[in-house]
Amino acid sequence: MSDTPASPNNAAGPAGANPQNPPSLTVLAQYVKDLSFENPRAPEVYQANEAPKIDVNVDVQGRQLHTDQYEIELSVAARANQGDSAEVMFVTEATYAGIFEIKNVPKEQLEMLMLVECPRLLFPFMRQIVADATRNGNFPPLMLEPIDFMGIYIANAQRKAAAAANPQTEPAS
């Protein structure tokens, strides 16, 4: 830590932030909110010789609990089918959540922080939960690939902007 006084050129710090109240993100709690593993065709499913086709869907939701406190939910649903058939090998669904205290962040940056940085902190735990659930179902652990939450956030923002710029008119009845 430095005791050097701030120069006049950077007295306010980055982007005019108040050095007395710097932005902060604190994890107050983390927990499994929902966990389900289904193995509907056991034990016959273990006779399959072909690799499963696995579809994974990820969702992030956030809501304010109290002043400066937010619950962020990271949900994953994975479904494995036998090859190209519709026969389900396993289905797992999990929601891992955290309560975050977010202080001194401009409102225009709050959504990005909630939908990018918070799930990035939760993801390694969710990855382990999904891997353990599939391994405990006697399948190889499903190791989720890293997720680019910022890329998803930007793509969603661009879709919203495009939709706002080109509103579809409803047909006359």
Rank of each mutant, 00 (worst) to 15 (best):
Met1Thr: 05
Pro5Asp: 08
Pro8Thr: 01
Pro8Asn: 01
Asn9Lys: 15
Ala11Ser: 12
Ala11Trp: 07
Ala12Met: 15
Ala12Val: 07
Gly13Met: 01
Gly13Pro: 02
Pro19Thr: 00
Gln20Gly: 05
Pro23Ile: 06
Leu25Ser: 06
Leu25Asp: 04
Ala29Asn: 15
Gln30Thr: 11
Lys33Thr: 07
Phe37Thr: 11
Asn39Gly: 09
Asn39Phe: 02
Ala42Gln: 03
Tyr46Leu: 01
Ala48Gly: 01
Ile54Tyr: 02
Val56Asn: 11
Val56Ile: 15
Val56Gln: 11
Val60Leu: 05
Gly62Gln: 12
Gly62Glu: 08
Thr67Gly: 12
Glu71Tyr: 04
Glu73Gln: 05
Ser75Arg: 15
Ala77Thr: 15
Ala78Cys: 12
Ala80Lys: 00
Ala80Leu: 08
Glu87His: 08
Val88Asn: 00
Val91Ile: 13
Thr95Tyr: 09
Glu101Pro: 08
Glu101Trp: 12
Lys103Arg: 10
Lys103Ala: 05
Lys103Ile: 03
Val105Gln: 09
Val105Cys: 06
Val105Met: 06
Leu110Lys: 00
Leu110Asp: 00
Met112Gly: 10
Leu115Ser: 08
Val116Lys: 13
Glu117Arg: 08
Leu121Gln: 08
Phe123Tyr: 10
Phe125Gln: 11
Met126Pro: 02
Met126Gln: 04
Met126Tyr: 00
Ile129Pro: 03
Ile129Tyr: 03
Ala131Asp: 01
Asp132Trp: 02
Gly137Met: 06
Pro140Ile: 06
Pro141Met: 09
Asp148Asn: 14
Ala155Ser: 11
Gln158Asp: 08
Arg159Gln: 10
Ala163Phe: 07
Ala164Tyr: 06
Pro167Lys: 10
Gln168Met: 14
Thr169Ser: 15
Thr169Trp: 14
Pro171Lys: 15
Pro171Met: 12
Ala172Glu: 15
Ala172Lys: 15
Ser173Val: 14
Ser173Cys: 06
